[in-house]
Amino acid sequence: MAGLELLSDQGYRLDGRKATELRKVQARTSVFAQADGSAYLEQGNTKALAVVYGPHETRGSRSKSLHDRAVINCQFSMATFSTAERKRRPHGDRKSSEMSLHLKQTFEAAVLTELYPRSQIDIYVKILQADGGNYSACVNAATLALVDAGIPMRDYVCACTAGFVEDTPLADLCHAEESGGGTSLALALLPRSGNIALLQMDARLHQDHLDALIEAAMTACKGLSKVLDDVVRQHLEEVSVLTRD
């Protein structure tokens, strides 16, 4: 892609955003009536759908259950039409398995699993349209779905990606910026306590820049948590108006 700069001289990115500006986030919970909890989230052009079932008895072999905690089972899959080039297998390939493992690790830090020994909580996430920030959209959608299902959590989990171009950290990367070959950091944060649930970075970065990058990602996550908070509160108010006398 010759000639396309990730950050122009005036400080504008490929899609016209400033360096620390996030994409537009829209979300809705309780999308499906049959699941215990569900949510749909759009972060720019990336669309993710999360569904939560549980807690219920451990499916499959009983030996997978833990005696003092619930097991969190995640599956990440992408719709075959989600990427520009058609994906042949929705799930089961290495990348999806890796993402599922990351999601499991992220939510084990946030969900109060000690309350449900010997049971299993299923989180299924599907990407309907992929335009960068797949992992973050999944985490945000799954957080909303868990809140919708009434599963006790320590805090929201908000995730965002950040990149680094010419000494400026960029927040919330889109697909073109991610695949441009520069640094890309994915961060999952529990906003109120400031604890990091997952941190992953690809590509080379000078260690002096690491702090600035993590700061940028954390600020972006905190901004995202406000949006998610609004969505949850709005939904609660809507439901209470309907059920109140």
Partner: peptide, 8 residues
């Protein structure tokens, strides 16, 4: 009062 997970 409404509350959300993580609120003190």
């Amino acid at each position: 009062k409404l509350c959300v997970p993580g609120e003190r």
